[in-house]
Design a protein around this nucleic acid. Structure first.
Lengths: 305, 305
DNA sequence: CAGGTCCATATGGCAGACCATATCAAAGGG
DNA sequence: CCCTTTGATATGGTCTGCCATATGGACCTG
């Protein structure tokens, strides 16, 4: 006997009122309605369930009593109402971005410096958000954003990205010189880029870290020379390896200073060419959902940590 | 913003259909309705929740997509429907006596022989029933039944009980002679009650175990003598103690044979006086609920184990 | 650019739910 | 034995929800 009973919120409340008052008249009063339709509603309920919930008599003048099934149903009704409220509340929180899953991508360079405060702030301000992390190259992250398999990505200098992605800069890092420890300028407080014009450089090659390679080229051009590239590398460890080996110098974001790599000195560069800066930005689809917007807001408020 | 949303079963099913098909037309078809009212229903739902559940466009020709909130709501909707079905099912089971709590009372004499199979059979046939046991005197059990603090009681010879309680006999035990081991008749296969006419008896005294005392008195009268009572006891251990001490004989239900008491021999009595039998019965209120009726039926089917 | 797909909107009809007033039947108390 | 209490029943009105048909507008596709 499959029952097509509806158990509307209203009906459950009516039954609970009767179950608590054990009296149709008072229950009707507390529901701001008259007694007859309440009787009918309960009868409909009992008919729909095929179960007698209330013991009406034969001694009615003292109200009604709950049958065992009625007592059980009262418990269940309360649970159902609670579940319903909780479900609505949960959906609202998801819609408002206070709860849910966000898939966040980042390029490796950012992991050690920007992820920690971001994750900490998220856990504190948006404890309902579950952040799923994914590290990849800038290009792949952009593809994933467009494909919808990623919600937010942190990259460096994303200016040449696809047009249908929104970009939000949130931090600027200076580019500094990375020199071998034994280099003659390694102990300087600051040097000019032209001081390196005769050095051998190692810069990102191929499609790897394109913005970094481009910035370096442009900055040297601004300084009046073309860097002599004796080596290339397509990831950060390669670049750092060449420098640490004492074979080359490089131009890298200053936050790499925190990397525990022996044999490398990071020396600030004098001058303020726009190409000696690198921008860190959050990228997302223009139709990002509320959780992403919350995260963007959080990032904006905590920017330049 | 407290929401008076109703979330009727129908509405949830409609939303789930759309969420699964991701297509209003097909969803409407699977619901055996036309598309426009379905659109309206979903719009009502979204308006009621104050949340956008579906992403309609702008590129509609490929159906709709779920927003994060919509996906969350689909999960919640399924849970709500399941909870609702489960609640109805549970109430039905309670009403049919397949689930619930039953408070069962018994007098001590019955505990070791009849409770085990009763509880075992209940656990097997009615695993949803929770049986709460309570041991007390026949009189107190009857009071508790009338007061509604007990649902079912097992007693011996409950004939003189209150009129507003229903009685259901389910087993008959013979009364046997309890003799000290060193008694001259202790080794007999069977004896006549008159063989004990000159013995000292110990029988229940006061209001304790009234049926047992009465049966003994009447049986002796049938046998043509009045038992000489040198001692009394108001519980079973007292009676057995006197016998084991070798001071008295007694008349007791044969199921006591299973008690591990050294020093006592139980010897069957010849003859078939109705007073040499003791009836075991289940007592309950006439308006007992379904669970009690199930237990009574179970007892009836397993009677005389 | 024409056709097709898909969802939204508009309109009208119907059934059922909900409600209030009035009345009835049963049981217990003075 | 009458009266109060209490829940069930009867009746009529209103309104909302639900539905179907018809139409419009946005978008993609060939």
């Amino acid at each position: 006997m499959v029952c097509h009973m509806d158990l509307s919120k209203r009906l459950l409340e009516q039954f609970l009122a009767v179950a608590e008052e054990k009296h149709f008249g008072r229950a009707a009063e507390s529901l701001s309605m008259s007694q007859p339709p309440l009787s009918q509603a309960i009868q409909r309920l009992e008919r729909g369930l095929g179960v007698t919930l209330l013991e009406r008599g034969p001694s009615s003048p003292r109200g009604v009593r709950l049958t065992p099934a009625g007592a059980a149903f009262a418990t269940e009704a309360r649970r159902l109402l609670d579940s319903q409220s909780a479900a609505i509340e949960r959906v609202r929180r998801v819609a408002h971005g206070l709860e849910g899953d966000v898939r966040v991508g980042y390029v490796s360079i950012l992991s050690h410096r920007h992820l920690p405060w971001l994750l900490r702030a998220t856990a504190e301000e948006l404890p309902g958000l579950r952040v799923h992390l994914h590290q990849d190259s800038t290009a792949t992250l952009a593809e994933m954003l467009s494909a919808g398999t990623l919600d937010l990505a942190f990259v460096r200098d994303p200016s040449p990205l696809s047009d249908d992605l929104a970009v939000r800069d949130f931090a600027v890092e200076r580019i500094v010189a990375a020199l071998p420890h034994e280099h003659r300028l390694a102990g300087s407080d600051a040097i000019a880029l032209t001081d390196l014009r005769d050095e051998d450089f190692v810069l990102p090659s191929g499609d790897a870290l394109p913005s970094l390679a481009q910035q370096a080229q442009l900055a040297c051009r601004d300084a009046g020379f073309t860097p002599r590239c004796r080596a290339g590398a397509d990831d950060l460890t390669g670049l750092l390896g060449y420098v640490a080996a004492g074979l080359c110098v490089s131009l890298l974001p200053e936050d790499l200073r925190d990397f525990p790599i022996p044999g490398i000195a990071f020396v600030p560069l004098r001058g303020s060419s726009p190409h000696l800066e690198t921008t860190i930005a959050a990228v997302h689809r223009p139709d990002a959902d509320a959780a992403v917007l919350r995260l963007l807001d959080l990032i904006h408020r905590h920017a330049r940590p």
